[in-house]
Design a protein around this nucleic acid. Structure first.
Lengths: 163, 163
DNA sequence: TAATTTAAAGAATATAATCCTGATATAAAA
DNA sequence: TTTTATATCAGGATTATATTCTTTAAATTA
């Protein structure tokens, strides 16, 4: 799955994570190439699936989605076999930004974004508790966001040396 | 903090979340306006801080960051007063994508992205446990990603009616 | 109704993306 | 070492897109 990337590719990935709309000519200037090879590299990264897309980063309070909640979910034992059905339900709920199958006491971690506690209560009652197999829900309300970035650091080769 | 948005603004936000690089003329076509007012609206949304930026969405396994971990952190009581110092440390660690101050048994939830468990162990030993005040760490490894999106649903007015 | 504001259209200009051709470098094979 | 193939890049021409300016229409207010 890892793709061969050289230092220029990593620079491109870095810059496009900082500004996904950076014009190709500026990108070219920054990495020290002309526009043609720069564009070719970007297109290749898109083609190979390294760059999966571009998105606008929205201020959540401005659009009335200022409350973030992380829910830990435990499924009932007899439901654990049919996870596909659970997944299908999750995908249909826009308030759930992310859902991870995790190790530990609970089975799933849900990243939920809503307007306020009222809307969260409504979400719990009409959406989450309606999903079959959900046995226990542990709600962790986000009081404040210390850090939240989408940018991931692309290191030189990905091969990591433990000293 | 919520900004007045009409239906066209919401369409723009929706489309630019789907494709942050959508050309203005296509955006205009989709929302049924000409390029001029469309561009004006986008610029206004950027100016008002509703659109905070644009970013390329990177495939993490492709860049050797295929392991996601959520860490719950408990700070020692005497450290809880000086959270600014904790924040400063968090901001300097690129593996930590997000850090939330949460309710519940633990104080913070950390969203961590690394290459593998080896690199995570190194991260724990050389980064996380070095932050002063960290008393307890509960590690939740992500076994699989059911859903992961950045797009948030922008509803009509943000005023929510509990039935 | 008249004045004022707001939003949008259309045309003209500026800027950027894309395509084409050719040059250079790197690596493998004779 | 020479030849061949393959990658990558540069520069210019073309096309597409963004941006600005001016005008028009609609909505709001006095």
């Amino acid at each position: 799955m890892p793709v061969k990337l050289d230092d220029i590719d990593r620079q491109i990935i870095d810059l496009l994570q900082e500004n996904g709309r950076m014009p190709n000519n500026e990108l070219a200037k920054r990495i020290g190439l002309t526009t043609t090879p720069t564009l070719e590299r970007v297109k290749r990264l898109e083609r190979e699936g390294v760059i999966k897309g571009y998105t606008a980063w929205i201020d959540r309070p401005s659009v009335n989605k200022g409350l973030t909640v992380f829910c830990n979910i435990k499924l009932s034992v007899h439901q654990l076999g049919k996870m596909e059905e659970f997944s299908k339900h999750i995908h249909g709920v826009p308030e759930i930004l992310a859902c991870y199958n995790t190790t530990g006491e609970y089975d799933y971690l849900l990243h939920v974004v809503v307007k306020d506690t009222n809307e969260y209560e409504h979400f719990l009652r009409t959406k989450l508790t309606q999903i079959p197999g959900v046995e226990r829900i542990y709600t962790g309300i986000v009081l404040s966001v210390i850090k939240e970035q989408s940018k991931i650091m692309v290191t030189d080769n990905g091969d990591f040396n433990e000293e």
